[in-house]
Simulated scan of single mutants.
Amino acid sequence: MSEYAAARLNMVEGQIRPNKVTDQRLVDAMLDIPREQFVPKAARGIAYVDEDLAIGKGRYLMEPMVFARMLQEVGIDETDVALDIGSGSGYSTAVLARLAATVVGIESDAELARQATESLSAVGVDNAVVITAPLTEGYPQQAPYDVIVIEGLVSEVPDGILAQLGEGGRLVAAVLGDRGVGEVKLYQRSGGVTSARTLFEAHTHPLPGFEAKPKFVF
């Protein structure tokens, strides 16, 4: 077993499984995708650390446990069409591609999007594409989606993104709570109405563009 394969196994057995992640398809996907392929070369030795990992340009790969819990809670079926908002270097898109039928990743930084496309090709992902586009707008051109995942902390989920969910669709995101702590929320669309519930707390880095708008004081 290679050094990285051993690190992936340790990530799953030490971080993922002990934290209520039981979906075997998800576990297999995280064992399969080489996380080191999606980080800067200088950071490959810490690719499997149990915290958010900087990938440059102020962006991060989410902590493996938080990311895995989010994907388990959103419930991805092998026939789903998924939207990955803030795909960064492409790791999240690659994992989603092992679970869903089709994945559209959007990334606002053109260089990160290029790196993501190259890395996805390098690991044999052929059912996903990464597009350069503003993150806060989602990607309505391919809507509706069965699943939407937002890769980072947001002040709120824009209504325009929620509107891209199809009937029965689910969205998962870490949203800044009243106490200043991230709360992973699951949004579900049923009967044309979108409801939300809080799942667990998550300390993750903000996703640029989703900061809270300043309030005017008179």
Score class of each variant (00 low, 15 high):
181 V>L: 12
171 L>V: 04
157 V>A: 08
167 E>N: 04
165 L>M: 02
187 Y>P: 01
170 R>Q: 09
167 E>C: 05
166 G>A: 01
162 L>I: 11
179 R>S: 02
181 V>T: 15
161 I>Q: 07
188 Q>K: 15
164 Q>M: 03
156 E>H: 14
160 G>F: 07
188 Q>H: 13
175 V>E: 02
159 D>W: 04
188 Q>G: 09
164 Q>G: 00
183 E>W: 12
162 L>P: 01
175 V>I: 15
158 P>F: 12
159 D>V: 09
173 A>W: 05
156 E>K: 14
182 G>M: 11
169 G>E: 06
187 Y>G: 02
179 R>A: 05
178 D>Q: 03
175 V>T: 02
188 Q>M: 14
174 A>G: 10
157 V>M: 08
187 Y>S: 00
175 V>C: 01
156 E>A: 15
165 L>D: 01
166 G>V: 06
172 V>K: 07
170 R>F: 03
155 S>Y: 12
167 E>D: 11
164 Q>Y: 08
166 G>Y: 07
161 I>E: 05
183 E>L: 15
172 V>R: 08
178 D>H: 00
175 V>Y: 05
159 D>I: 07
158 P>E: 06
177 G>K: 00
168 G>H: 14
162 L>T: 07
167 E>L: 08
182 G>K: 07
183 E>G: 01
165 L>I: 05
168 G>D: 12
171 L>P: 01
185 K>V: 14
166 G>Q: 03
156 E>C: 04
170 R>S: 04
188 Q>C: 11
172 V>T: 14
171 L>D: 02
155 S>T: 09
185 K>T: 10
164 Q>C: 02
188 Q>A: 13
185 K>Y: 03
184 V>F: 12
158 P>R: 06
160 G>K: 12
184 V>A: 08
157 V>Y: 11
184 V>L: 11
177 G>R: 01
180 G>C: 10
157 V>H: 07
187 Y>K: 05
160 G>H: 06
165 L>R: 04
182 G>W: 08
186 L>H: 05
182 G>R: 12
163 A>N: 14
183 E>H: 13
182 G>E: 10
180 G>H: 11
185 K>Q: 15
155 S>F: 11
175 V>Q: 03
158 P>I: 12
179 R>M: 00
155 S>H: 14
173 A>Q: 06
168 G>Q: 08
184 V>M: 13
161 I>G: 06
180 G>M: 11
173 A>T: 05
163 A>H: 13
159 D>L: 13
188 Q>D: 03
168 G>S: 09
187 Y>T: 04
185 K>H: 07
171 L>H: 03
156 E>T: 13
157 V>T: 09
170 R>P: 02
179 R>V: 00
183 E>M: 14
163 A>V: 10
167 E>P: 02
174 A>I: 07
172 V>D: 01
156 E>Q: 14
169 G>V: 09
180 G>W: 13
178 D>P: 00
168 G>V: 15
182 G>S: 06
160 G>V: 13
157 V>S: 05
164 Q>N: 01
168 G>R: 14
183 E>N: 10
166 G>H: 05
159 D>C: 00
178 D>C: 00
157 V>C: 10
166 G>S: 02
179 R>P: 00
174 A>D: 05
161 I>N: 05
163 A>Y: 08
173 A>I: 10
178 D>W: 01
188 Q>R: 15
159 D>A: 12
171 L>C: 01
176 L>A: 02
176 L>F: 03
